[in-house]
Amino acid sequence: MNVSIIGTTGYGGGELFRILHHHPVFRIQSVHTTREEIPLDQEFPHLNGITNLKLEHIDTEEIAKHSDIVFIAAPSGVSSKLVPAFAETGIQIIDLSGDLRLTDGEVYRKWYKHEPVDSRLLEKAVYGLSEWNKEKIMDAKLIANPGCYPTATLLGLAPVVKERLITPDMIIIDAKSGASGAGRSVTKSLLFSEINENFRIYKVNEHQHIPEIQQQLNLWDAEVAPITFNTHLLPIIRGIMATIYVKLSENMDTDRLIELYKEHYLQHPFVRIRQKGKFPSVKEVSGSNYCDIGLHVDERTGRLTIVSVIDNLMKGAASQAVQNANLMNGLNEKMGLEFVPLYP
């Protein structure tokens, strides 16, 4: 099957290229940008000798004519202008921006500060949280790929929220990400001298991923109250750690909850649950499609601490998008994604 990538000059688009280049079924037909049309290896010198593809401008009809799937890794606000034209062609669309994730256009306008796409398209878009929406993804033509923070957070919370094992009015998420999550744009706050040997909070109680997380939690349990969610910038390149605090609604110990999580994710090969007393670090999932989760019940407070880690560019973006493409086309969801994490 032929695929095209839009937004190939970003980190997420670059990871899509790396994954799809080795995929046994998907073949990269073309790569696209809104910027200068140059050979891809001029934008990414590490691809020298690996590809002869040239960055092309975006022509929806031509892309749809030669490809079966288009991955849109353009920024929010840009992607929303491309999706309607692609939707008319019948091509499979996987959108990695936030433009299709929120079902309420007014909520999107408030948090993203852009005009929302037509509500009829939002209704067609399937939220691509691979482990929890598999059946809908398999029948979809239009996928809203989840955000990086929501992926780590929702995979960590899903079992206890769906089983109604926590009090719904106190969910606190303390999340941290590497600098690549902000993209390749030149920003003062992302200069090496600003982030090295530093650690800071940003978008305090205002991160645009809050409504995305809240929306999915309320689909699992309508009683879940507004969450507290804050993000921090780590002085590393890639990786997300979401440390989540919830109050248990009944007495449960760590062993029982670990077994619950293992049962829920038994058929999901990319979620790994740690043994009691063991907690994951971001390095242990780097370059992979894995989400690793560690759990601990504090019997003194009755609170459960959930530690969920992913690679923000992989499970949080590109590799989850390919996992969704596999599911959409009846392929084994692991196809082309069984990377061993990079370590150290």
Rank of each mutant, 00 (worst) to 15 (best):
I244N: 11
P168N: 05
S119P: 01
H264R: 09
I93D: 08
A225D: 09
G336R: 01
R120N: 02
R272S: 02
I173Q: 13
N218C: 10
L129E: 09
N251G: 00
G14P: 05
E223W: 00
G13C: 12
Q323S: 11
L102I: 15
A85G: 00
K334C: 11
I50M: 10
S177Y: 05
I258V: 15
S97P: 06
F71D: 02
E223V: 01
T167Y: 11
K315F: 03
E56N: 03
R274S: 12
Y265S: 08
L47I: 03
R164G: 13
L53G: 12
L165A: 02
I237P: 00
G336Y: 06
P341Y: 00
R18W: 04
I166T: 12
A85P: 03
L129W: 08
T151N: 02
P45Y: 02
F86R: 08
A73G: 14
G10K: 09
I69L: 12
S319E: 00
G128W: 04
G12F: 03
V160D: 02
S76P: 06
G77N: 13
K162W: 14
K262T: 04
E37I: 05
Y245H: 11
K134L: 13
K81S: 08
Q215G: 14
K247Y: 04
A140E: 06
K110C: 00
T254Y: 08
P84F: 01
V25R: 11
H114M: 15
D253K: 04
H209A: 05
H66R: 06
L20R: 07
V224P: 10
G128I: 12
M1C: 08
R27V: 05
S308H: 07
V309W: 07
S185W: 08
S67F: 04
M335I: 11
A85N: 09
Q42I: 06
T103N: 15
D174G: 00
Y290K: 04
K262I: 03
R101L: 15
G128V: 13
P146N: 09
N312V: 10
Q92M: 02
G49K: 02
N324R: 02
I91F: 02
A318S: 15
S79K: 05
H46W: 04
N196G: 01
I38P: 00
I50V: 15
I28L: 06
M138P: 00
G98T: 13
P280E: 14
P116Q: 08
E15Q: 09
V322W: 04
F270S: 01
P146T: 08
T89F: 14
E333Y: 06
E56W: 01
E131H: 14
I94T: 06
G183D: 06
G7C: 11
P235R: 05
P226G: 13
F26M: 06
F71P: 03
I143L: 14
